[in-house]
Design a binder for these strands. Structure first.
Length: 184
DNA sequence: TAGGCCATCTGGTCCT
DNA sequence: AGGACCAGATGGCCTA
């Protein structure tokens, strides 16, 4: 355990530790579920363990049980939602990786952190927007000098492009923008 | 060793 | 009702 401020925080109560009137407290000497109330369930091809205690807690010799659904059922549901959450986070991380690859940045051995990725992506979008607006302003010298109006028309044009063409590459989009700026 | 970053677990809330 | 989403907590790994 690392000596950081985080370490001193009290962990969230687990389902088995809440002050819930629906829970009964019972002691079950010799039960295989005591000593942390572990249960293992096979999910997604691997065995996962559900701990009745939370990250090194010290609940020994007692366990609590909800009256209406069995401990086993709840353990299984918990493990299933853990698995779904894991998959969800993996998808999120894949999206972050795709974003990393989409934005230009100085290549180093160290991969961009999530916060760096988001910040760079934001700046990249801003830069591209500025460039595109510059292009359209060149074609529309006086008519649409208001940046906000231009930006909203740009967005409108982009959405229209997505509807008509799906997610095509940037060059298609840019040529669309170009015809938009010439046509209007 | 402290701090940053991350994966995972967890329970609450929202949505379908 | 069940799944998706979210945020808090925690421990592990890595680096300055």
């Amino acid at each position: 355990m690392k000596s950081k401020g985080k370490g001193s925080k009290r962990g969230r109560q687990s389902w088995a530790e809440q002050d819930d009137p629906d829970f009964t407290l019972e002691t079950e000497p010799g039960s295989s579920e005591q000593e942390g109330s572990e249960a293992s369930v096979r999910l997604g091809g691997t065995w996962r363990t559900l701990r009745g205690e939370r990250h090194g807690g010290s609940r020994v010799g007692t366990r609590r049980r909800r009256l209406h659904s069995s401990t086993k059922e709840r353990n299984v549901r918990r493990l299933e939602s853990n698995e779904r959450e894991r998959q969800r986070m993996h998808k999120l991380n894949n999206a972050f990786q795709a974003l990393r690859e989409a934005i230009p940045h100085v290549k180093t051995d160290k991969k961009l952190s999530k916060i760096e990725t988001l910040t760079l992506a934001k700046n990249y979008i801003k830069s591209l927007t500025t460039i595109i607006l510059g292009m359209s302003n060149a074609c529309l010298p006086h008519a649409e000098s208001d940046m906000e109006t231009n930006a909203s028309r740009l967005l409108q044009c982009y959405q229209q492009h997505l509807q008509e063409e799906g997610e095509e590459d940037l060059s298609n989009y840019l040529s669309h923008i170009h015809s938009f700026s010439q046509g209007s």
